[in-house]
């Protein structure tokens, strides 16, 4: 039997983080999106200890203010794309600027500098990623997926999907289905 999971990475990370902080007896206040306010001054020794504990989970303490902001941009975008409850009526550039209280130009430059990609590309990448998840679930038609991801038409979604991944949504669906069948077969063999 193969089970398929859907994760909320943010929630998982949050839980792991709180666990580790509690284990290290650090008083903190959760601000959300990977940001934690430590309510005491940490000694260098204690900071190293925490860093080592987090490294097991490949969690990094980000000291750089720029990195923190980039992470916030990413989190906001992911939330915007994946979270149904977040309804964005304005352009994503406006939404980002308002939410993060920085000019879009600043955010955009900063983002490209740190991540080797643009905010626009990152948004597209995340949208296509979400589309992939929905396609694999096979619960929704392409039309519904296009609507849900704010595309004007299926053709628009298909074009962007193909431009981003090099393959069409139907080919993607076919490949993943056959790949799973193959894995299943290998397991039973």
């Amino acid at each position: 039997m193969t089970l398929f999971f859907k994760f909320d990475f943010n929630a998982i990370c949050q839980i792991v983080l709180e666990q580790i902080l509690n284990d290290n007896n650090i008083k903190y206040k959760s601000v959300g999106f990977g940001e934690i306010e430590v309510l005491e001054k940490l000694s260098k020794e204690k900071q190293d200890q925490l860093q080592n504990a987090l490294a097991n989970y490949q969690i990094d303490i980000v000291e750089n203010q720029k990195s923190i902001l980039v992470q916030k941009i990413k989190d906001t975008i992911i939330d915007m794309v994946f979270n149904e409850d977040v309804v964005v009526n304005v352009k994503s550039s406006v939404y980002l600027a308002e939410t993060l209280e920085h000019s879009y130009g600043y955010l955009s430059n900063l983002f490209s500098e740190v991540t080797y990609t643009s905010i626009e590309n990152f948004i597209i990448l995340q949208k296509i990623e979400f589309a992939k998840q929905l396609i694999i679930k096979q619960e929704f038609s392409l039309t519904e997926i296009a609507f849900r991801l704010n595309y004007s038409s299926v053709a628009h979604l298909s074009t962007q999907f193909k431009n981003t991944t090099g393959i069409t949504p139907s080919a993607f669906q076919r490949i993943i289905a056959k790949r799973r069948a193959l894995n299943q077969q290998n397991k039973t063999d």
């Binding site: 992911i78 991540t115 080797y116 990609t117 990448l125 992939k132 393959i167 993943i176």
Partner: peptide, 21 residues
């Protein structure tokens, strides 16, 4: 490399990583 980097740094599901040129 860039897209792979995105997958790598943003903990995206690699099972869905398909790219063709």
């Amino acid at each position: 490399v860039t897209i792979n980097w995105q997958y790598h740094t943003n903990s995206m599901n690699k099972d869905n990583f398909l790219l063709r040129f």
